Deep mutational scan, measured.
Amino acid sequence: MAAGGDHGSPDSYRSPLASRYASPEMCFVFSDRYKFRTWRQLWLWLAEAEQTLGLPITDEQIQEMKSNLENIDFKMAAEEEKRLRHDVMAHVHTFGHCCPKAAGIIHLGATSCYVGDNTDLIILRNALDLLLPKLARVISRLADFAKERASLPTLGFTHFQPAQLTTVGKRCCLWIQDLCMDLQNLKRVRDDLRFRGVKGTTGTQASFLQLFEGDDHKVEQLDKMVTEKAGFKRAFIITGQTYTRKVDIEVLSVLASLGASVHKICTDIRLLANLKEMEEPFEKQQIGSSAMPYKRNPMRSERCCSLARHLMTLVMDPLQTASVQWFERTLDDSANRRICLAEAFLTADTILNTLQNISEGLVVYPKVIERRIRQELPFMATENIIMAMVKAGGSRQDCHEKIRVLSQQAASVVKQEGGDNDLIERIQVDAYFSPIHSQLDHLLDPSSFTGRASQQVQRFLEEEVYPLLKPYESVMKVKAELCL
């Protein structure tokens, strides 16, 4: 049975990233139509530049190519590739079939990587351009969430054990800070992308030097003109047959890092959902379990974690691919890159769409948070109580021993009897502590235990987050809708 299948058929496997999760716009960027249309555009740009620099290419040939950029006979191309065992030459023939007058000058002087690699770089750039505003929107939604809850005390956790208090907004800023680093890295790697350009079979530009009869300047002009037509500021000066596969490492490393950030955020949300302090959106008709109707599973956060793990592992592909590119190139890269580049971007696209949807509907339960604080705060307040007693004339050592005994009794009630923490009640009825009984409410005010959390939130948002989001103001209103 021949390899390949009808990918629109229910009898043929289709990647869930495309069929179930990723956005239509990201799927289109990695589609065959987008790819092969870009090949034709690159052939047109090459012909236009070659004509401008004096090669015998007519206006009629150029116009014929322009008129057929979208006229792609995919069936013919597939048949040609089956016959020739070469995808680029299959599309040269297919393009030439609908451009008979231009057929002889299509791909003039070029090698397969002229269309293959340059198209990949265009796709990487455009895919990054799709991700950047999506990530900015996630940051914006979380920034709104953090600002609104900047002063809401909550129990902090280290080692997932109760620690000092923080605020809900401050905790959210930990998430935002990681995503801001990801946004900066995505922008950097996007701006650092260079075009492969017009380089020939081993990167020496020998074929173009021959076409222009040894004119170095025209060869350099050709490279520059096509690079500018493709919208790049610069091209690699040095290439082998391909652009260095280190570029793929750079791009997928940034995406993998984004995956790590999203995994951490969504894990926190899942843990908070278990504590009943916070939940992701839950639709009115949504079913959490087929057997347990009360369940409210954090399905979206779980999906993000599941896909983020996949995204983090994909960076190993370009690392290994770059390491086995012998001399000017081997074909070890080809099949692998067809999979890992598309999957990385479709996965990143999915987790950003999902995280935006989550961040637009996060639900906080202040009463649950308050109750958990009441359970733990008495123990945390013991040092403040000791200091207040010393100020009232008591002995630190005597007070410490009193607190120690009462704390152990209260802990026994919590752990052995399943009761509430009654340390404060014990202190309130103990005559030894009568000098500070009137101060206990103040000493137990949760806001006095959150330090500068709310001020940190305000400063972080104003100095770091809002300036970073400013270039994306025009796209901030787009909502994230999930079908599944």
Rank of each mutant, 00 (worst) to 15 (best):
Y472N: 11
D182H: 03
H159S: 02
M476I: 14
G8F: 15
I249G: 05
R459H: 09
S290A: 05
Y432A: 08
A22F: 08
S9D: 09
T350Y: 12
I106V: 11
Q320F: 10
G197T: 02
N118F: 00
L307H: 15
E81I: 00
D420S: 05
P378I: 04
C172Y: 11
K199Y: 02
D215A: 14
Q439P: 05
L131E: 15
I237W: 08
M292Y: 04
F460C: 05
A103I: 10
L406G: 07
Q456V: 03
K66E: 10
I176R: 02
A256L: 05
C172M: 06
N384K: 07
T158K: 09
A381H: 05
L108M: 11
M476E: 15
T167L: 02
E148F: 11
T94W: 09
E250C: 10
G5E: 14
D268C: 09
L53E: 03
I373S: 02
P318N: 05
W45V: 06
K264Q: 07
A206Y: 02
L155K: 00
R329P: 00
R338G: 04
Q325R: 02
V475F: 09
V226W: 04
P133S: 14
S67M: 14
I403A: 04
S151F: 07
V219N: 08
Y294G: 03
S323F: 02
E277Q: 06
P56K: 11
E213W: 11
S447H: 15
Q184G: 11
E302V: 05
I403N: 07
Y466P: 05
V92M: 09
P378H: 03
Q51D: 04
T111F: 00
P56Q: 11
N421A: 08
H310K: 11
K402T: 10
L211Q: 10
L271R: 01
I287V: 07
T158A: 00
T244N: 07
R372T: 05
L423P: 07
T166L: 11
G109L: 00
S412K: 12
G214P: 04
T321W: 05
V429S: 15
T58L: 12
C180L: 12
R300S: 06
Q161R: 02
F379T: 03
T167A: 03
S407R: 03
K134S: 13
A110S: 14
L53V: 14
P366T: 07
H93N: 14
D223W: 03
V324K: 04
N297M: 07
S395C: 13
G4W: 15
G361L: 08
L461W: 07
D223N: 08
S289W: 00
L53P: 02
D333R: 03
M387S: 15
C173P: 00
K35V: 07
R149W: 11
A143G: 13
